[in-house]
Write a protein that binds this DNA or RNA. Structure first.
Lengths: 347, 347
DNA sequence: CTGTTAGCGCTTTCAA
DNA sequence: TTGAAAGCGCTAACAG
């Protein structure tokens, strides 16, 4: 609008130098004021603080990131932003990271490993300080990217014996096993596991395996059923009806998730099938519906928020490791988290 | 590890120049390959594409952002990441923005205007291309920041007559009014609106006002009730019990949200209160519980995903406006979105 | 259609 | 405890 210069015009924003001039110090001192404040004299600090206040200065993240070759950024890829499953985990991460000045970059993979790789690749351009991923299931390409990136990578929502990277989660195999054992202890014998339609849900598969193993150990025959790929309400209904027919009607059903289980419960209520009398039902997830159903739903509650929080803590640990040659040496690599079996009326 | 030079050591990553050398062109041509590909000869494009493939080059976002003074970044502040209300909107935004190379920066305000201001301030440092906020309720400080930032700002999840900024949403006042009118048309007269405990939920307040206005227009006396600040399950129960007592027992209740309504429905079922026979109930949100209750819940479905999508589209429109002196001149500033009244069994 | 030049605003490095 | 110099890797602005 004024001063039509011919070279670059800059952003027009207040910059470090402006603050420095106002405070009567060099830009470098102001730079130290952020990040290494202890190296700045008290007196200088005061003048700088005032200059910042007065100008409303906000550091340019891009300049800082470029100069330091590492942005204060953490990337996170989750299977799905909507759906309410991972939201709390994201919240746990942001709550923990924010006080340390890290900004979360979020991407959703839509439960696709290929899209996850895409997202990770995009994140690499941000020189992220760390990455947080869900689960252990990645493409070869993703693994390569992660290896080359040479930054802390935390995997959450799952837990495996010999994980290659930092992990914060629980064993879905154990969840399946515990669910079966719990129902067995309650006296149920003909226990069936109902899969969701999506084979992308690797963790549901693991729960099914845990269930199967437990059944075998108990001298029972595992039996899994694949729910039709419909809305969970109909799928749950269909599963309940089918499994109660036949010569070996199910006495108890473990659903791959609470939504499916909700469909079954509702259908039971409408169709006059007594639950747990005619058939016990349990789910997984402890979604907000679980306690609002009749009967209320017995389910497994994963530590959703807590996993996010701990994942972020491990990231911070790894980054604190003084940029040293030993990346993440003192970091707790295996972080098993406790899930909870919430017993309600449906079993 | 090798070459212990004394000056900066760089990131060690492949950079634009490496690709350029390999392709036998200047860095600038490679730069144009991203972003202005039409200005690059076919032949050069091929060689560049191959060089990129071969090196696995990923552009450094910070360098680009610094040089161009505008990062390919859009900031979004939502009241709450968990909770499942805004997740779909976020998904709509990311789905729409991603193909254009924009990265979403997400922050949660915990329904606090002060925290929202904090988040906006932090975003300013990112020189975001645009910002997306929920609602019209901001602190004075936030307004100042937005004004100074001189970038497109889209407000969503609400709609007001003379909004200062681009808006994508619906009128909560209208929702309240329509809910009341709907119940009136169904024959109900003693209709009560139940507030949630949190006064931060400005939009619920607006729905209450719309309800009150409609009641007056219909010659009825509006009556609102403040649910106790407990878990929604108990709050809904308490509200239902209280409102059915007294000399003017409610014939119909509009709850501020589906969670509250679910508490009431469940209590009705357990306590043998016929719904809608003894009392009709409707909610707001069409959360995933709404159709899994007995009776299923009549509610209002906001276009959650769609609002995110359209908000992102307006952002893109505004940014397409050729960086010209007229920022966002041709952009559709008012974008009313349609909500839907989903009639189910509870009314 | 392509290249040259000069920064973007900050932090690293080195020296005091 | 502070400062000066030298880039970080890319793109805007010109000129061909």
């Amino acid at each position: 609008m004024n001063a039509p210069s011919r070279k670059r015009r800059g952003s027009g924003r207040i910059k470090l130098r402006d603050v420095a001039e106002l405070a009567g110090v060099s830009p470098m001192t102001v730079s130290r004021y952020f990040g290494q404040r202890e190296l700045v004299a008290q007196e200088a600090q005061q003048r700088i603080a005032q200059a910042i206040e007065q100008t409303g200065y906000v550091p340019n993240v891009f300049a800082g990131g470029l100069a330091s070759a590492r942005g204060k950024v953490v990337g996170m890829v989750i299977p799905n932003i909507a759906g309410g499953v991972f939201g709390e985990t994201v919240q746990g991460v942001t709550d923990t990271l924010r006080p340390h000045g890290y900004q979360l970059l979020l991407a959703s993979s839509n439960y696709s490993s290929a899209e996850e790789e895409e997202a990770v690749r995009a994140f690499i351009g941000w020189s992220p300080a760390a990455l947080i991923l869900i689960g252990h299931q990645h493409t070869r390409g993703t693994e390569d990217l992660l290896d080359k990136a040479n930054i802390p990578v935390v995997q959450t929502w799952d837990y495996k014996p010999h994980a290659k990277r930092i992990q914060v989660g629980f064993s879905h195999f154990d969840v399946g096993r515990d669910s079966a054992q719990y129902l067995y202890d309650k006296g149920y014998r003909r226990i069936v596991f109902v899969h969701t339609g999506q084979p992308e849900d690797v963790r549901a598969m693991e729960r099914a395996q845990g269930y199967a193993r437990a059944m075998e150990s108990l001298g029972l025959t595992p039996s899994t059923y694949q729910a039709p790929m419909q809305a969970p309400l109909e799928a749950g209904k269909e599963a309940l009806d089918t499994l109660r027919k036949g010569r070996w009607p199910a006495e108890a059903i473990i659903f791959a998730n609470d939504n499916l289980a909700a469909g079954a419960l509702l259908h039971g209520l409408r169709a006059g099938i007594a639950i747990p009398g005619d058939c016990a039902i349990m789910g997984f997830g402890d979604l907000s519906i679980a306690d609002k159903l009749l009967p209320s739903l017995t389910t497994i509650r994963p530590p959703r928020y807590e996993m996010g929080r701990v994942a972020a803590l491990r990231v911070l640990d790894a980054l604190r490791t003084e940029d040293g040659e030993a990346p993440a040496e003192h970091v707790q690599r295996d972080n098993p988290m406790e899930y909870e079996l919430i017993e309600r009326e449906s079993t």
